[in-house]
């Protein structure tokens, strides 16, 4: 573990609690008959959580960190994220089943190739903006590079930072827009809300369209927990001191 001592104690406890819950659930029972049990999920996210052919909006779930998926299910149930279909489906679901579902999709082979065919053309200007923000950020506006938290390969970081590769552009635009307008929330500190508010709508479009074309190596999943230290405080994730 890199620099764990810089973590506030409550953050470390929260990470441990999350890992404990996930471990307890996966030890208790894998999801038997998962394909049939999760038929409602497959309709939009694909049977293996790989996303659905032709879907230009729904994100893939396969190979994303279990902690991230688990928190999103809770967020839909508890009103921190708003999607009527998702809230409708998980409104009467307890944490244990959510953890089992999250663990199930986290264990699927990660989606690393874009499914998005509907994104607009990436102009040279957009490409330059995107590459600069994704790889270097914008210190003047206090915007960290995406890679600082989501990893050099943009495949995420265990236990709770998701991959950004292979997501549909419209989905990314909607999420950043929802953070800006206060519709989407994460557990505090909600770092993505801060980042999204510091980006302009043009930046968001450029980043989303560029990201939707990125490919990672086949099978590349999230980096192991602690393999690098994100610069910002995000939920219960370990992080370094703010620069």
């Amino acid at each position: 573990m890199v620099a764990m001592p810089s973590l506030p104690i409550h953050c470390r406890l929260a990470v441990l609690a999350l890992c404990g819950l996930l471990a307890a659930t996966s030890a208790r029972a894998d999801l038997a008959d998962a394909t049939e049990r999760l038929a409602a999920c497959s309709a939009c996210h694909g049977e293996q959580g790989e996303g659905v052919r032709g879907a230009e909006y729904y994100p893939h779930l396969a190979g994303k960190p279990a902690g991230y998926l688990f928190e999103q299910l809770q967020n839909f149930r508890d009103g921190r994220r708003v999607n009527a279909q998702m809230t409708w489906l998980v409104g009467s679901m307890d944490d244990a089943y959510m953890a089992a579902i999250a663990t199930h999709y986290a264990a699927m082979p990660p989606r690393t190739r874009p499914a998005d065919t509907g994104a607009e053309t990436l102009t040279e200007a957009m490409r330059q903006t995107a590459v600069r923000l994704v790889e270097e950020g914008d210190p003047a506006r206090d915007v960290p590079p995406c890679t600082a938290c989501h990893g050099k390969a943009l495949t995420g970081l265990e236990p709770a930072i998701p991959a950004l590769v292979a997501l549909p552009a419209d989905y990314i635009i909607a999420q950043l827009g929802n953070w800006r307008s206060g519709v989407r929330h994460a557990q505090p500190p909600d770092c993505m809300a801060e980042v999204a508010r510091d980006l302009s709508p043009g930046d968001i479009r450029a980043i989303a369209v560029w990201l939707s074309r990125q490919v990672a190596a086949d099978g590349a999943g999230p980096a192991p927990a602690g393999s690098f230290l994100p610069p910002r405080a995000c939920g219960a994730m370990p992080h370094g001191e703010a620069p």
Partner: peptide
């Protein structure tokens, strides 16, 4: 504890 589901159409 782990209900089956019906997909949206």
């Amino acid at each position: 504890p782990q209900p089956y589901s019906m997909p949206p159409f």
